[in-house]
Amino acid sequence: MGSSNTDVSTDLIVKAQQGDQEAFGDLVRYFHDRVINVVYRMCGDRYLAEEAAQIAFIKAWQHLSDFRLQTSFRNWLYRIAINTATDIIRKEKPDENLDDIQLISNQENGDTHVENEERRQQIRKVVLALPDASRAVIVLREYEGLSYREIAETLDISMGTVMSRLNYARNRLAEMLSGYLEET
């Protein structure tokens, strides 16, 4: 369940809410990797991800007094990070359509390392081409391991919507990555 702050000291959050910048710095260090991971999977560019993460943390600081301690700080932060990443992608990157992506599946060039790298890049592209809403659900589920309830809480949507978006996203990905799925 994501409705508690078992992964981070509540005391640290309270201190940050009271205006303690040192405590907030500790929170930033604690959640840095996870937030960067989420925004990177959302926008696919390390510099955009860095920018999005910075904006997200600043926003979190500005609205920290609105955060309710009974809810999950991590999920609250993820929501800010995902919204920020989505805004940045809309401004900075043109839409990439799934149908425009050409798969390079089943290529055998003899170098397993290169093949793996190509496959990973292809998967990254396909994930990035998903609609923002579905991509957010996939990112939280596959890369952050959140439960459906936690995803629903983070994105402020119903469990049913989580299920349908995840189903849609995985169907699309399975379709686009069918070449890889057959070869494995």
Partner: peptide
């Protein structure tokens, strides 16, 4: 598919945690 998706490369960091 789930295994494929999880086999993602690590996020290339621009700054270290402390710098960030």
């Amino acid at each position: 598919l789930i295994v494929l998706l999880k086999d993602a490369p690590p996020v290339p960091a621009v700054h270290s945690k402390d710098q960030f």
